[in-house]
Simulated scan of single mutants.
Amino acid sequence: MDLGISGKVALVTGGSAGIGLAAAKSLAREGCDVCVVGRTPERLADAVVELQEFGKVVHAVLADVEDPSAARRVVEETRDVLGPVDILVANAGGPPPGRFTDTSLADWDVAVQRNLLGTVRLIHAVLPEMRARGWGRIVTVTSRSVREALDGLALSNATRSAVAGVVRTLAREVAGDGVLVNNVLPGPIDTDRLRQTSGGEEKLAERGRSVPVGRIGRPEEVGDVVAFLASERASFVNGVSLLVDGGESRVIA
C-alpha cells in the first residue's frame, strides 16, 4: 500500500532507539526524508547509518526536549537541512516509575517538562507552517496508561494523559486547515526501558504471556502504526488515541 507521503519531511524525537527509531525507519521506508532527535551522540550516529539504508536524506540533531529552547532549535535546523516539517512524531522517553507518595515535586517538574511541555513546544514550533501549507500530521507517542491508570506509574499516568488531552483538543481546532493530530498508545514493547524495568529475561517472557496475543510487541509494529497515521491513507483519522498493546487493555472505549 502506497501511503502517499514520499518526499515529505518527518521530524522524530526520541528517534535514536526503540519506538522512535522504528517510526523513523517506517517513515523513511515510505519515502520521507527524516530528522531524528536524541540525547546520546553514539546512538544518533548509529541511527543515521541504519536510516541511510533506505536511500533518503537523513539528518540528526543532538537535543533534549526537556530543554525549553530545544524545540524551536530542532525545528529550525530541520527546516534548514531538509525543508519545513510535514510530519512531527513527538516521542519522549517515559518518566521514572514510582507511586505518587514516592515522587517529589522535582520529579513532577521533570516529567511535565519532558513528557508534556516538550511535546507542546514542538507542536507550537511546527504548527504555523503546517497550517499555512494546508497539510500536516502530528503523531504523539504516549502509553496505554492514558486509557488505564497503571500501578506504580504515577508520573506517566498523569503526564501522558495530559498529552492525550492536548491531542484531542488540537485535533478539533486545526483539522480544517489540513492538519491531523493523533496519539499512539503502546503497551508492552521490546525496548530498553521495558527490559530495564522487567527484571530479566524470564520476567520479560512472563510479561509477554500475560498479553492476549501471547508475546510483547516489537518496536516496528508501533512504528508502522505511526507511519500510517502520518499518511494520506489516514486522511479521515483525527483525534484518536490508538492502543497498540496486543489487546492487553481491558478498558472499553
Rank of each mutant, 00 (worst) to 15 (best):
L122K: 07
T159G: 08
V110S: 13
D151T: 14
S145M: 08
D2V: 10
L82Y: 05
P41K: 07
V112I: 15
G187V: 03
V112T: 13
S161L: 11
T78E: 12
A47V: 00
V251D: 15
R79P: 09
A106V: 15
E42D: 14
V126S: 04
V213F: 02
E221P: 04
A71Y: 06
C35F: 08
V226A: 04
V110N: 06
E173Q: 15
G134H: 04
A234N: 03
G152F: 10
A230G: 10
S26A: 12
S249T: 14
A132D: 15
A28M: 02
R79S: 15
L180A: 07
T40A: 14
D151Q: 14
V139S: 03
E206Q: 11
L170F: 08
A149I: 04
P128D: 08
E232D: 13
R29F: 00
E76W: 09
P188A: 12
V36T: 03
S16D: 11
P212K: 08
D102F: 06
R131T: 15
L204H: 02
G178L: 02
D67R: 05
A132C: 06
L116S: 05
A28T: 00
L170I: 04
R29C: 01
S235P: 08
T119Q: 11
L88H: 07
L194F: 00
V85L: 14
D151K: 14
E221Q: 02
R172S: 11
V237E: 11
A22R: 00
K56Q: 10
E76G: 14
G208C: 02
I138M: 12
V211L: 02
T40F: 03
G14A: 03
V81F: 13
D80H: 13
E76R: 15
V146A: 02
L27Y: 02
I138H: 07
G15F: 01
K203S: 13
V85P: 01
R114S: 15
S6M: 13
V139A: 08
T169C: 10
N183D: 14
G214R: 05
C35R: 07
A90H: 05
A92W: 04
D107R: 06
R207E: 12
G7H: 10
L88P: 01
D46L: 09
R29G: 00
V146F: 00
F236Y: 15
G152Q: 06
W108A: 03
T119M: 10
D2F: 06
H124S: 15
A230N: 07
G176E: 08
A23Y: 01
G200S: 03
R144D: 09
R233N: 09
E66P: 05
L117E: 15
E202P: 00
K56M: 02
I123S: 04
N238V: 14
S198A: 15
C32F: 01
G93L: 05
A171R: 11
G246D: 08
L3D: 05
L180F: 13
T197F: 13
V226D: 01
G7Q: 06
V57D: 12
G118F: 12
M1C: 09
V222R: 01
V226Y: 00
I87A: 10
R193L: 12
N182Q: 07
I252P: 15
V240A: 12
A90V: 08
K56W: 00
V244D: 04
D224K: 05
V58E: 05
A22E: 01
P188D: 14
R147P: 03
I138F: 13
V34S: 02
P128R: 12
L229P: 03
